[in-house]
Nucleic acid binder design. Structure first.
Length: 551
RNA sequence: GGGCCUGUAGCUCAGUCAGGUAGAGCGUCGGACUUUUAAUCCGAUGGUCGCGGGUUCGAACCCCGUCGGGCCCGCCA
């Protein structure tokens, strides 16, 4: 008998490390700190949001859910970094935005359809640049089952929430400088000061600090103007490396996932955790995650237009599949988002998982440890994929592939439901299924739908496919010309014509279908032909058979 | 220069934290369903765990080195 040194004899705890999903590992870490948690996420609304940003939010959401499942209180918050400045005139912006560079995203007008500043909405409704990009993202979040408490950063500055930290920083610029220089290994300019005042035009760039008398930071700007910035009234902002740890404090953040850029040694989390202590609070438990890139196109980037937006993704993919993508990948794993075949496989894997009974599987005592890990991981990933936290993910029992076929073959939804009914599906379409079909149709209509999945009826006979047919199979075509010509143009009628052609040619149905698939789809096999042909133009199909016979 | 992630079956990846007989899904191939919604079911196929050393009774896993891919250390959150 083999003994495994790693088997501990004590009773299995909820936190049996070897059997944990990544979200549970984080929950365990949080449990060591207490049972009240605020999980933070944060994004700068500088441009179009993309599914890369979804990972940030979903990672946080899943940690919060895991903490709640383990019996803790946990809330998800979303810091909207609208106090950050506009960095440059992005390609989607009009050149007039040049004047706003350095200005805070929450204090400048949103671009209109032509990329020009929309002053009307800005002046009348206060509709800002940040709002413009945030709004659709929030809608996508709602669909995907994430409703975080929003913490707009600019408003936090104006409300004086940064006052305490800003005072500590401005009172101790040398201590801050020491931390940043030592931990990040870079040298700060001599005139560096831990506060960025707004200049005479409202920009955070280009000011020189001339003096500090709490609560005022005195400055001169690039326009030759000078003035004072009150650090308690949001007349400026803390530099990012201080801004972040300051937010941890007054928002009482206990956990925050962030992209790998922040997580690098000497990066902003490293300096942040020391600065947090200086501010007087513990840094949150970190979790570094990898980026999501687009398959074959590299990293996602708003400015290059190389993105799939959350709303676009949701038109194609059911939200639970998007959640599953994140839940099923360890945060350290880079995700390649593939809107083609990868998506089909992902969705079908999801469907297969929903059909499994994990509890029963786990009862098998002969399972290897490895197997147990797999089951546990899959089970938790599936739970986290549910849009609503409490609900069990339900199986549609219709694979993505199958749905893709039906949606292509049947232009009318009713026919799809009828077909499902006939093949043992649900008597009435569930709302979930209707939703699936709607998204599937959008996907098929989009450029993202993989060619491999597309059903194409040949316009003319494919030479190569036809050459592979033997004489017997060719003979079928002769009879097919006749039987099909007389057939009633319905699925049943066409099926009957196939049979009749087979009988006339005295060959088995296998050869009939071989011949048909070669002719109609240039393939050896395929989806059931008759219903597809029934939806095609009769004249075109007969013409196709004719041409084939002539050549 | 410093650091992080990553390399396992044709593909996507588990497994590395706590060393104990290389795993899953997809794909491919074959069969069944007396023929079909790329379906389903069964079976088969498949890997010098990037490479080289070391530690060990035993290494995908730990240590050292090396090669390849991605990335960060410039307030770009």
């Amino acid at each position: 008998m083999t003994t495994f040194p790693f088997v501990v004899s004590s009773e299995p705890s909820l936190f049996e490390v070897s059997l944990m999903h990544w979200s549970d590992v984080m929950a365990k870490r949080l449990a060591e700190r207490g049972d009240q948690h605020i999980v933070a996420t944060g994004i700068t609304p500088s441009g179009e949001f993309h599914i890369g940003h979804l990972r940030e939010i979903l990672t946080g959401d899943m940690i919060a859910r895991a903490a709640r499942r383990a019996g803790m209180d946990a809330e998800l918050v979303f810091v909207v970094d609208n106090a950050d400045p506009l960095r440059k005139v992005y390609p989607f912006l009009d050149a007039s935005y040049e004047a706003f560079i350095g200005h805070q995203l929450g204090s400048i007008p949103a671009p209109d359809a032509e990329g020009k500043p929309d002053w009307d909405r800005f002046n009348n409704e206060g509709w800002s640049y940040g709002d413009h990009f945030l709004q659709p993202f929030l809608e996508a979040l709602r669909q995907i089952g994430v409703v975080p408490r929003l913490l707009p950063n600019l408003e936090a500055y104006r409300a004086g929430k940064f006052s305490k930290a800003a005072k500590v920083a401005c009172d101790n610029p040398h201590a801050i400088r020491e931390i940043i220089e030592r931990v990040s290994g870079r040298e700060l300019p001599d005139d560096w000061f831990p506060w960025q005042p707004l200049d005479s035009k409202g920009s955070l760039d280009g000011t020189v600090i001339t003096d500090y008398e709490y609560p005022l930071v005195h400055w001169t700007d690039s326009h030759g103007q000078s003035g004072s910035s009150d650090i308690e009234k949001g007349e400026g902002k803390l530099p990012w490396r201080l801004d972040w740890p300051a937010k941890w404090g007054f928002n009482q953040i206990t956990c925050e996932p962030f992209g790998k850029d922040h997580g690098a040694a000497g990066g902003s989390y490293d300096t942040g955790k020391e600065i947090a202590l200086l501010f007087g609070h513990e840094p949150p438990a970190p979790l570094t995650y990898e980026w999501i890139s687009l398959k074959g196109k590299g990293a996602m980037s708003s400015s290059s237009g190389n993105t799939v937006g959350p709303m676009e993704a949701l038109r194609l993919v059911p939200p639970e599949i998007l959640r599953f993508l994140v839940a099923n990948s360890k945060p350290s794993k880079a995700i390649e988002f593939d809107t083609g075949m990868g998506l089909v496989n992902l969705a079908d894997e999801y469907e297969r998982l929903t059909a499994r009974d994990f509890d029963t599987e786990m009862k098998d005592e002969n399972l290897s440890r490895r197997k147990q890990v797999q089951i546990e991981d899959a089970k938790v990933a599936l739970e986290l994929s549910a849009i609503h936290e409490q609900e069990k993910p339900s199986a549609t029992s219709i694979s993505f592939r199958h749905m893709a076929l039906l949606a292509q073959i049947k232009p009318n939804d009713e026919d799809v439901w009828a077909s499902l009914r006939d093949s043992g599906g649900p008597p009435e379409p569930t709302p979930q299924l209707e939703d699936r079909l709607k998204r599937m149709r959008a996907w098929i209509a989009s450029e993202h739908f993989p060619e491999d999945m597309r059903i194409n009826i040949c316009q003319s006979p494919d030479k190569e496919a036809m050459e592979h047919l033997n004489d017997l199979q060719r003979l079928v075509l002769v009879h097919l010309n006749e039987t099909l010509g007389e057939a009633i143009w319905t699925a049943d009628g066409i099926t009957a014509a196939f049979k009749a052609a087979g009988q006339a040619a005295e060959v088995g149905m296998k050869d009939v279908y071989r011949a048909c698939y070669a002719l109609f789809m240039a393939a050896e096999r395929g989806p059931r032909l008759a219903p597809i042909l029934a939806n095609c133009n009769r004249g075109d199909i007969l013409e196709l058979v004719n041409i084939a016979l002539e050549t």
